[in-house]
């Protein structure tokens, strides 16, 4: 089996890795946005709850949380399928990190612009949707790229719950051909290519939608 053959076997798992990553990113985005929005509430119990949420999910190792969800919850009678387990785990962990990024970005938005929208007769919801949200997203881009690539790098944990992605294929290949060095080097290369592609695509999108005076570097 040549190095190319190994690469081909692994690449067949890349689709699942990508699918997993995208699903986890979507979950993380939803969690991060929800937490960031809720944190605008001035109600003390909500604030405390969110501080706790952020501390817990930024402090617990991803692998431990994944095992808690996949192997632990069935003990309480709750069986979570493998794919969903990973999406839930990374959604919560990366969501907690994204929430911090969004919060910081929201503080970078000029309050007076939102006030101007309301002074012109927009509702609070409109000011939020048309002024605050679009600017917040632009300020968050570098942080989001970081977090999304972090998600990609966590996806090999999926093999521990039996999802046939890149790492799982590598592990079933190693005992057959007994060339761990080559196999894991190939795994590294496949991940690196996906990582580079992600960074290139995200950066191109950022450049395409960049607005003078609003990119994070100029903040």
């Amino acid at each position: 089996m040549s190095f190319w053959d190994i690469l081909a076997v692994l690449a067949a798992g890349a689709g699942i890795t990508l699918l997993l990553s995208v699903a986890c990113m979507a979950a993380a985005l939803a969690v991060g946005l929800a937490v960031a929005l809720l944190s605008r509430s001035r109600w003390a119990p909500v604030q405390r709850l969110l501080v706790g949420f952020t501390f817990v999910f930024r402090g617990i190792p991803v692998l431990v949380l994944l095992f808690l969800v996949f192997f632990g919850l069935p003990g309480l009678g709750l069986r979570v399928p493998p794919f969903l387990s990973l999406v839930l785990t990374l959604g919560l962990v990366s969501g907690a990190y994204l929430a911090e990024i969004f919060r910081g970005a929201m503080n970078a938005v000029n309050r007076e612009e939102v006030l101007a929208a309301e002074a012109a007769g927009m509702t609070r919801a409109q000011g939020f949707t048309y002024i605050l949200l679009p600017q917040m997203f632009r300020f968050s881009i570098p942080g989001m790229i970081n977090e999304f690539t972090a998600i990609l790098k966590y996806t090999p944990f999926a093999y521990t719950v039996g999802i046939p992605e890149i790492m799982k294929r590598a592990m079933s290949l190693t005992p057959v051909i007994l060339r761990g060095l080559e196999v894991y080097l190939a795994v590294g290369i496949v991940y690196y290519l996906i990582y580079k592609a992600c960074v290139v695509i995200f950066s191109a999108l950022e450049k395409r939608f960049r607005i003078p005076g609003l990119s994070a570097q100029e903040r």
């Binding site: 000029n110 007076e112 612009e113 006030l115 101007a116 929208a117 309301e118 002074a119 012109a120 007769g121 927009m122 509702t123 048309y130 002024i131 679009p134 600017q135 632009r138 607005i211 005076g213 609003l214």
Partner: peptide
């Protein structure tokens, strides 16, 4: 909101929507 629509407001620091 209807009242504010009849009053145009110009701010010292412009408050243009930067995006």
């Amino acid at each position: 909101r209807r009242l504010r629509q009849s009053i145009g407001f110009v701010f010292q620091h412009f408050a243009l929507y930067r995006h």
